[in-house]
């Protein structure tokens, strides 16, 4: 029994890009607090789901945040309702300095958690004047996470594969940062690294071919080798067993 209140609710979310129907009616609920994992094999629509929530791709269906409908709003208006976003490719502004990347993310009217950001990623303070494009992949991921963490009024963070392509040491730091971030905001996490996901999340939603095929406790999914193999792939299943 999960007593936490629903925060983000998707109902029949559909996204068609060109001739391909990427999402074929995705419905799920993310409850307040903690980290909810959005899992699945490559190409099943995880990133598109996050982009669909933000209105970065044309979509139909319903997305509500704390029962307020978001689908009629522009992306920037959705974000201002308290949605932080860490994209799959980090998307730092390469020509801007680290400090400018963070300043750009500051939302007028919101309190800014520079203390938390610099506690988690002290090198961002040291490299404030450095162009973000010259940072390592791990440092760019820190900038991307810091931008989402900065605004204290963010209620949910949509984080897309934050450990992708990072060295193991950095993966651990990112995982620690996510755990700390979950103390201040709800997180919907797309993660291909199942070992990391297993350590961080309790609730999981699994997508397959643009549909939700599993929603429940992570242990239930991981504990069932057949389910894990079917929806996450053989390699992923081996990773956690």
């Amino acid at each position: 029994m999960n007593a936490r209140a629903p925060l983000l609710e998707l109902h029949d979310l559909r996204v068609t890009i060109g001739e391909s129907q990427i999402l074929q009616g995705v419905s799920f609920t993310v409850r307040e607090g903690g980290i909810t994992g959005l899992l699945g094999r490559n190409g099943v629509g995880k990133t598109t789901t996050l982009r669909g929530i933000l209105g970065l791709v044309p979509r139909t269906g319903s997305v509500t945040l704390a029962q307020a409908e978001l689908t009629a709003l522009a992306t920037y208006e959705i974000v201002r309702r308290g949605v932080g976003y860490v994209p799959e490719d980090r998307d730092v502004f390469a020509g801007l300095s680290v400090e400018e990347n963070l300043r750009l993310a500051e939302r007028p009217g919101a309190a800014h958690r520079y203390d938390l950001v610099y506690e988690l990623f002290p090198e961002l303070r040291e490299r404030a004047a450095q162009r973000a494009g010259t940072l390592s992949g791990g440092q760019q991921q820190m900038v991307s996470l810091a931008r989402a963490l900065l605004n204290a009024d963010n209620r949910i963070l949509l984080i897309d594969e934050p450990t992708k392509g990072l060295a193991p040491l950095i993966v651990k730091r990112v995982a620690d940062a996510l755990r700390r971030a979950a103390e201040v905001a709800t997180i919907l996490l797309v993660e291909q690294n199942l070992a990391v996901a297993h350590r961080l999340v309790k609730d999981v939603i699994v997508l397959d071919q643009g549909r939700v095929v599993f929603s429940g406790d992570v242990e239930e999914l991981i504990g069932d080798p057949v389910l894990a193999r079917r929806y996450l792939g053989l390699a992923a299943a081996r990773e956690v067993h």
């Binding site: 970065l56 522009a74 920037y76 974000v79 201002r80 994209p87 502004f93 801007l96 750009l104 993310a105």
Partner: peptide, 15 residues
């Protein structure tokens, strides 16, 4: 300056 690099990401920062 940021928009010249990545307009969609600027929107995704609430701008």
């Amino acid at each position: 300056r940021a928009g010249v690099e990545n307009r969609a990401m600027v929107s995704a920062l609430g701008i």
